[in-house]
């Protein structure tokens, strides 16, 4: 369990990135932080592995204040996946996946054997192991990034807009893959995105943030759609328009669901 208690972050230039945040991130679930740029979602994420230290408040992992833990040691125990994969361009795929185990002092042989297994886990062919990241497609690089994040079997996996830079088809594929993985592994995933559709698809809990690092609502997707906390949330999730504002019409005795523009979205199952 990750807990934010009265956490704030003000940068030296006076910008307030995060404003007094209290939130609990439940274990073995996916929590998605969603908001537009400047909402502090990435800053909040980076406080978990001390890439950013808060200027007020505490971040606790299973009751331990992360400020009391050596940052390097802390980071080696938390999976991290970022946009553009963040792979080391001078290391082969297999060495990238094995990065953290090798940093922890595991033997090369054991780390490599485990890395090959992880390539299977994320659906990559083992023949890619000896390539350099630049020789892979964007989607493949992102999978390698996920494999690296899982290499030390961490309880916590931080994902910072991991699918932001790949095309929509590959993104949809990677999202399904993550859902499958999460179903098998049950990690505590904290996922940052600006895409509300992605947030609703992946999140057990969705945290909607607005400018200046304020949390507008933290709840399950269904609750957010049913009871948006305020006008900002309603507008952000588009609850009153487009493909989310569905209603039912009757066509030849069957009940068809159409969106706000009148386009058919499906039929109501009996």
């Amino acid at each position: 369990m990750i807990e934010f208690r009265g956490v704030a972050k003000q940068f030296p230039d006076g910008t307030v990135a995060v404003h007094d945040v209290d939130i609990v991130i439940p274990p073995r679930k996916t929590t998605v932080l969603v908001g537009s740029s400047g909402s502090g979602k990435t800053t909040l994420l980076r406080m978990i592995n001390r890439m950013v230290d808060p200027t007020a408040g505490q971040v606790l992992i299973d009751g331990t204040d992360v400020a009391t833990v050596d940052p390097v040691k802390l980071r080696r125990g938390i999976g991290y996946v970022m946009q553009n994969s963040g792979l080391l361009p001078h290391r082969k795929v297999i060495d990238n996946v094995a990065t953290v185990p090798l940093l922890r002092g595991e033997s090369r042989r054991a780390a490599h054997a485990h890395a090959l297994e992880l390539l299977d886990t994320v659906g990559l062919d083992r023949s890619l192991a000896d390539r350099y990241p630049a020789q892979l497609s964007g989607g493949q690089q992102q999978r390698v990034g996920v494999a690296r994040g899982l290499a030390v079997d961490p309880n916590i996996l931080l994902m910072d807009e991991p699918f932001g830079a790949v095309d929509p088809i590959v993104r949809a594929e990677l999202q399904q893959e993550l859902l499958r993985l999460q179903g098998e592994l049950g990690k505590t995933v904290v996922f940052v995105t600006h895409d509300i559709d992605e947030a609703f698809l992946l999140g057990d809990q969705v945290v909607i943030m607005q400018q200046g690092g304020l949390i507008s609502q933290a709840a399950s997707p269904a609750e957010i759609l049913a009871h948006p906390a305020d006008a900002f949330v309603a507008d952000f999730v588009g609850a009153d328009r487009g493909k989310r504002a569905l209603h039912v019409t009757e066509v030849d005795g069957r009940r068809v669901v159409v969106d706000a523009d009148g386009r058919a979205a499906g039929v109501l199952a009996p």
Binding site: R46, N49, M51, V72, K73, R75, R76, Y80, M82, Q83, N84, G86, L87, L88, P89, H90, T99, V100, L103, R104, R148, L158
Partner: peptide
């Protein structure tokens, strides 16, 4: 910058990052 940050995020120490990431990539 992304690569330096990602190296830090996965747990490179400052010295480890210099020898293992920055120096070879500056090569």
């Amino acid at each position: 910058r992304d690569i330096r940050q990602s190296a830090t995020a996965v747990g490179y120490s400052s010295a480890g990052r210099f020898w293992g990431v920055e120096l070879p990539l500056a090569g």
